[in-house]
């Protein structure tokens, strides 16, 4: 077993016993949010980290997932699990459309499309009052349950079962990410990131791969949105906030884009950092913005990279 595997397993072990160590509801709450953001970050890492396409609209996929699964639950009273699958499908379709439209031309177009679609969805959320209740938002979104036959019902409305639900999904997505990037698909993604023309010249259909990866990424983000909605039980058009998109990008870049563990580390850091920055009061977001600039310019390879470098240096001396 190599070092990376040991670290990953230790991480998993820590996550498993975390609820036993941290009984405080606030810590559980943060842990659940970190899990949801980790799903978002993994989904963006597939796109940004492995194919080099910057999306500033992951809030769009996240928000669509949240709304779709909430609306299915509230209006049709179908089980939450089916709503989550619907969220996955809806976000995937949205991802397909965005990718189809913007990858005819590359670069800035995709970024602009993702920002634009988020703003438009926010407008829809605000204005389609009959469906979304506008700025009032949707309330009383229930949590999923599992009937265990004679043993009663497992209610995910409690924090601890929800924590384990999310943890298992993070592990699943982490594994999916791992399998995907070590498959022939993953090699194609990376060759697109490194040199698109070259990839095209050896017969990789970049357009096709990019559309696929956006769909997968959007679907995961949609599930994250759905999990968020059923956790907090209330959503409003704020789920389409530009800040969410930016923060997810920071998770991927700050953690280490194109690495397996990067998005997890990033999700932990950038779920907590905005909380810590509350000490700055109203200047919180301005400080955050400065941090964004500093990280993007000085730590583009992510914290993980610089920490390992530092450790290696110390070892040598």
């Amino acid at each position: 077993m190599n070092r990376d595997r040991i670290i990953t397993l230790l991480f998993l072990l820590g996550s498993l016993i975390y609820p036993i160590l941290m009984r405080d509801p606030y810590y559980m709450h943060m842990a659940i949010l970190i899990g949801i953001y980790a799903l978002l970050a993994i989904s963006l890492n597939l796109l940004l980290g492995y194919t080099g396409q910057l999306s500033l609209g992951h809030a769009a996929f996240f928000g669509v997932g949240a709304y779709v699964s909430s609306l299915f639950y509230l209006n049709l009273k179908i089980p939450v699990w089916i709503g989550m699958v619907m969220a996955l499908i809806a976000s995937g379709i949205l991802g397909y459309i965005v990718a189809k439209l913007s990858f005819k031309l590359r670069g800035a177009y995709f970024v602009i499309m993702t920002i634009g679609i988020t703003e438009v969805l926010k407008l829809v959320g605000l204005n389609w009052v009959d469906l979304t209740k506008g700025p009032m938002g949707l309330t009383d979104i229930g949590a999923p349950t599992i009937h265990l036959g004679g043993l009663g019902t497992l209610d995910f409305g409690d924090k601890i079962p929800y924590y384990y639900l999310i943890l298992s999904l993070v592990v699943l997505c982490f594994y999916l990410q791992y399998r995907l990037v070590s498959s022939s698909y993953g090699r194609a993604f990376i060759s697109i990131r490194e040199n698109e023309d070259l990839a095209e010249s050896v017969g990789i259909n970049c357009y096709k791969y990019l559309v696929i990866v956006v769909m997968v990424s959007a679907s995961i983000a949609g599930v994250a949105g759905s999990l968020y909605a059923h956790y907090v039980s209330f959503i409003d058009p704020g789920v389409f906030a530009f800040f969410i998109s930016v923060n997810v990008v920071m998770m991927v870049i700050g953690g280490g884009q194109g690495t397996l563990m990067g998005p997890i580390i990033g999700a932990i850091l950038f779920t907590l950092i905005p909380e810590w920055l509350r000490v700055f009061g109203d200047a919180r977001m301005a400080v955050y913005a400065v941090m964004v600039i500093v990280i993007v310019i000085f730590m583009p390879r992510g914290i993980l990279f610089y920490v390992t470098q530092l450790l290696n240096l110390r070892k040598k001396t």
């Binding site: 990008v249 977001m285 955050y288 964004v292 993007v296």
Partner: peptide, 8 residues
């Protein structure tokens, strides 16, 4: 991204 940071 630095431009986005600046705009924020």
């Amino acid at each position: 991204l630095s431009m986005i940071g600046f705009s924020l």
